[in-house]
């Protein structure tokens, strides 16, 4: 029975609102990746292979970013080495 009290119940979010929130996030992420050179994924994979010859690092331990600073493009590379105790 639909009563006056149902009006005050919190209603589930409408699906269009969910769609919008999900799209805003994924589109922002896609745009962040735009303009980065196509070779970045390959570079990352090869670097990881080389580093793994010497240290056993996680696949997620290598971060490669391209940043624009005025006229210059900066390739930023960061590798998180495992704790010494883990060796």
């Amino acid at each position: 029975m639909v009563g006056i009290f149902d009006f005050f119940k919190s209603r589930p979010q409408k699906s269009a609102q969910t769609a919008k929130e999900r799209l805003l996030i994924i589109v922002a992420q896609q745009r962040g990746e735009r303009g980065t050179p196509d070779y970045i994924p390959r570079l990352k994979k090869e670097l990881l292979e080389v580093i793994r010859k010497y240290v056993n690092v996680d696949p997620g331990a290598v971060q490669v970013n391209v940043q624009k600073e005025g006229e210059q493009e900066l390739l930023e590379l960061s590798v998180v080495l495992p704790d010494k105790e883990d060796d």
Partner: peptide, 17 residues
Amino acid sequence: RVATGDMLSVGDVEEIL
């Protein structure tokens, strides 16, 4: 369907893109 909240509105699509 936009009125019932089941479809993205013109404004939603414009804002996302």
